[in-house]
């Protein structure tokens, strides 16, 4: 008989404890974001899309050689004073596995992975990106801002 009432009382107390936990949670700030309007900043080491700082590139082709999926292709030409300059740098995003090896291997830190994470497109051709084009990621950004 004593155990019966003890059970009921301890049960009731534990229920009230549970209720107090959820009640406190009602008043603490929301941890989710209103996604398209509010954006979460990506972490420092987030690996997004491959990007290029054109002026830093020394055209060593190490990124092309180390790429495990061969998604980068690079062409260069010699200027009149026998300096190598970059002519084209193509990036096939559909092949990329975002391993970041190109960033690690780049001696001039010209190749890096940016913070873009909204990378869905309607056509596969949109995934073939010319890294020398300054507007290359504008379509991702513009869709984002809408």
């Amino acid at each position: 008989m004593r155990k019966y009432f003890q059970n009921i009382i301890t049960g009731g107390i534990s229920l009230i404890k549970g209720l107090s936990v959820t009640f406190k949670n009602i008043f603490i700030p929301r941890i989710t974001l209103q996604y398209p309007k509010q954006k979460q900043a990506m972490t420092e080491r987030y690996r997004g899309l491959v990007d290029l700082r054109k002026e830093k590139c020394i055209v060593c082709s190490q990124c092309v050689r180390i790429c495990p999926t061969a998604c980068l292709s690079l062409a260069s030409k010699l200027t009149e004073d026998k300096k190598k300059v970059i002519e084209s740098f193509k990036y096939q995003m559909e092949l990329c596995c975002f391993c970041g090896l190109c960033e690690q291997v780049c001696p001039a830190s010209a190749v890096y992975l940016n913070k873009i994470y909204e990378v869905a497109v309607y056509s596969r051709d949109d995934l073939k990106i010319d890294l020398l084009d300054p507007e290359k990621y504008a379509k991702f950004d513009s869709r984002v801002s809408k």
């Binding site: 959820t22 949670n25 009602i26 700030p29 929301r30 941890i31 989710t32």
Partner: peptide, 13 residues
């Protein structure tokens, strides 16, 4: 809304 508040979400917005 209550379920969202308890779980620290916004719910329908």
């Amino acid at each position: 809304k209550v379920s969202a508040a308890v779980q620290n979400r916004y719910g329908p917005m």
